[in-house]
Amino acid sequence: MATRVSYPAEIKLKAVEMRMAGVSVSEVMEHLCIKNKTQVDTWLRWYRNGEIHRFEQPVGKQYTYGKGPEVTSEVERLKQENRFLKQQLDGLKKVQGVGKEVSPEAVVQWMDSIKGEVSVQQACLWLGVARSTYYRWKNQRNTQPVSKPLVTRIRELCLAHKFRYGYRKITALLRREMQVNHKRVQRIMREEGLQCRVKVKKRKGIGQPFQVADHLLKRDFHAEQPLQKLVTDITYLPFGSKMLYLSSIMDLYNGEIIAYSIGDTQDTGLVLDTLYQLPTVTSCMLHSDQGSVYTSKAFQQAVKEKGITMSMSRKGTPADNAPIESFHSTLKSETFYLEDFTCTTTAIVAQIVQDYIHYYNSIRIQTKLNNQSPIQFRQLAA
């Protein structure tokens, strides 16, 4: 029996983005070292059906959650979703106020109002609430005590960061205000359904080594000082009326995005615009993949003029450029996928990316930076 290959979620997502950008299946398979055409078709079907969570499932695992009620036609499904959106605006947000989290009491009342029309499983999926959490709220409806200050503060922090943080980072923020045990925070977040809703799994990359430029970085992602080691990549933004591309450069010293460009053409001009944003540097290494824009004569010449040493990943090995790949995945997971902005205008797409990069650099804390944001870490180190 042949060995089944497990591909990381990043590979699956990149394959889907390339297909939606018009890249042929054979080119996608060759670039990402995918063995079977049907795998690409399956991932594309999952994406179009809104089953992005299945990208994380291991080989042979079939998830049963998130399948909702059976509908006989697309029209009926859209009617159910429209009814949900109307009730969410007219019912839930009226109770709590626009921009505030819906309370357990409001959730239970709303679920009672749609009983028999939408399954509990589908309604919980729409609300982003676990079924077990809903049933616990329902059972405790008459005996639920007034929220304690710690529970309220945890809920405020989770909402402020749009459920991007797990219990460790929430604990780090709380410890700026009070003494609290991380296990208590974890228990409260689990009981209140406030867990992190962004799940990123990292797995070993696949592919055979093939060098264009020397692989000088060798997955050593630690830098002793700013502008010593930089990584760059381009990612697809298939969320607007037309395809956009994000080119970004990250400083491995503190994980800060120090340069980025957004364009509607994936050409050498896009990466050159990003490169020219860098200040004058000495003894700097810039690492990228083997994309044609990075191997082009114009880009290579610009890199040499800036006195930068070029390094490139091995073919079909995204893990060689893991930090910037992870950032692009995190950006999409914590914005477009988390808030379901998968079909909007190009102007909104660009604004979301700009706002998130500012949030990522200035506000979003990272465990590896002693629970500081990249800019805070750099300023304190200086």
Score class of each variant (00 low, 15 high):
317 T>D: 09
133 T>M: 07
317 T>Y: 07
234 I>E: 02
20 M>T: 08
21 A>Y: 08
291 G>W: 06
305 E>I: 08
338 L>Y: 00
112 D>T: 06
260 Y>P: 05
19 R>D: 10
47 Y>M: 14
152 T>M: 12
52 I>L: 15
59 V>I: 13
379 Q>R: 04
193 G>C: 08
164 R>S: 13
284 C>P: 04
231 V>M: 01
197 R>D: 11
193 G>L: 11
277 Q>H: 11
247 S>W: 02
321 N>H: 06
170 I>D: 00
154 I>K: 10
137 W>V: 01
259 A>D: 07
8 P>A: 13
214 D>W: 05
204 K>F: 10
37 K>G: 12
301 Q>K: 12
381 A>F: 07
137 W>M: 01
231 V>Y: 01
282 T>N: 12
231 V>R: 00
338 L>H: 04
323 P>G: 08
315 K>L: 10
157 L>Y: 05
113 S>P: 06
299 F>W: 15
328 H>C: 05
252 L>C: 04
45 R>L: 10
276 Y>S: 10
228 Q>C: 04
337 Y>R: 14
55 F>I: 10
278 L>A: 00
138 K>T: 05
311 S>P: 09
78 L>S: 08
147 S>Q: 14
53 H>K: 13
370 N>L: 06
222 H>G: 03
42 T>Y: 14
69 P>L: 13
205 G>L: 03
280 T>I: 14
146 V>Y: 06
59 V>W: 09
30 E>R: 15
212 V>L: 14
67 K>M: 15
366 Q>A: 03
38 T>P: 08
244 L>S: 07
353 V>R: 02
141 R>E: 09
349 V>T: 01
225 Q>N: 03
351 Q>W: 04
203 R>W: 11
11 I>S: 10
215 H>E: 12
211 Q>P: 09
95 V>F: 10
173 L>Q: 03
28 V>G: 06
247 S>M: 02
324 I>H: 07
59 V>Q: 12
142 N>S: 11
16 V>D: 12
312 M>R: 06
316 G>S: 12
288 S>T: 14
108 V>E: 06
308 I>V: 12
26 S>Y: 14
132 S>M: 07
340 D>P: 02
270 L>C: 08
121 Q>M: 14
331 L>W: 09
270 L>I: 07
151 V>Y: 09
64 T>R: 15
178 M>N: 05
345 T>S: 13
304 K>P: 01
161 H>G: 06
304 K>C: 08
365 I>D: 01
286 L>W: 09
233 D>C: 03
229 K>T: 12
226 P>R: 00
33 C>W: 14
156 E>P: 05
111 M>G: 06
375 I>A: 05
